[in-house]
Computed example of a mutant assay.
Amino acid sequence: MDKPIPLSQKIYLMGINPEKGGISSRSYTAMDYVLLGTLFMELYLEKKISFDEKRIIVRTTSSDNQLHRFLLQKMSKAKSPRKIGTWINKLYFSLKQIREEVQSGLVNQHLIKMETRRFLFFKWKTPVATNKQYLFKLERKIENDIFKGSSAEEDLIFLSFIEPAGILHRLFSDRKKRKQAKQQLKKLLLENRVSGAVADAITASQAIAASVAVSVAATSAVTS
């Protein structure tokens, strides 16, 4: 499959453990919030929304994408434009539905399957990558974009979410190479900045995802 997939599906696919399935431990806590951030960026790239003084302006509620329509209609009901961080918090109770829609999109493209797993009396569905060739091709592109650079706006937006999504550790298991990748990524994003409004929106999404990950980690440390 050579057809590009949306940012949200791409970031979710990269968060899956390619061998065992399931979202990797470093991506798990922040993934839902990162998904929301990438979905807002999809809407921006498709000119469905714009950003004005860190607030989202809905340009149209029309879309062929069911998930996009859901988000656009939610935001259009607000009396005045709200900040991206506000919307991410307000959509907290829709995170499961949003995640399932992203999963469904990947299943329909035969990139993942939802596998039933059991432990004692518990049963749940977990994502498993089914098109390893596509996954590894995507991994190589990300590594190439980090070390050789890319000036494409969509690539830069996607790369901005790699670290908040906890994907660097999966891509670069070697600590030394991971450190180099992190430095190169930081340099790339500084030298090829997206517009100020988009950068603010990305920063807001990253900050919420990071705060959730830290909060969960702190809670786990206290209760363990």
Rank of each mutant, 00 (worst) to 15 (best):
N65S: 10
T38V: 00
I112D: 04
R178C: 08
P4F: 01
E143S: 15
H68P: 06
H110D: 14
M1F: 11
K47I: 06
S150D: 07
I202H: 04
K83E: 11
K182C: 12
V222I: 15
N131S: 00
E154V: 11
V58N: 02
T116D: 11
K141R: 11
N131D: 09
Q66A: 15
G149P: 11
D174N: 15
R55K: 13
I167R: 05
K132Y: 12
R170V: 13
I23N: 03
Q103N: 14
F121S: 13
L156C: 01
T203L: 05
K177C: 10
L39N: 06
K20P: 07
H110I: 09
K10R: 15
L185M: 04
R178I: 06
G149K: 06
W87C: 00
G15E: 09
Q73L: 14
Y134N: 10
V34C: 03
L159H: 07
Y44L: 09
K20S: 14
T61Y: 00
T130C: 06
Q133D: 13
D200V: 03
F172D: 03
S24L: 08
L13N: 01
S8G: 05
F93M: 11
L13I: 11
D2A: 07
F70Y: 12
Q103M: 15
G22V: 07
S173F: 05
K54V: 01
S151Q: 09
V212W: 07
F40P: 03
L171N: 01
I146S: 11
K3Y: 03
L39T: 05
S63E: 09
S94C: 10
N131G: 02
I142M: 06
F161Y: 13
E143Q: 13
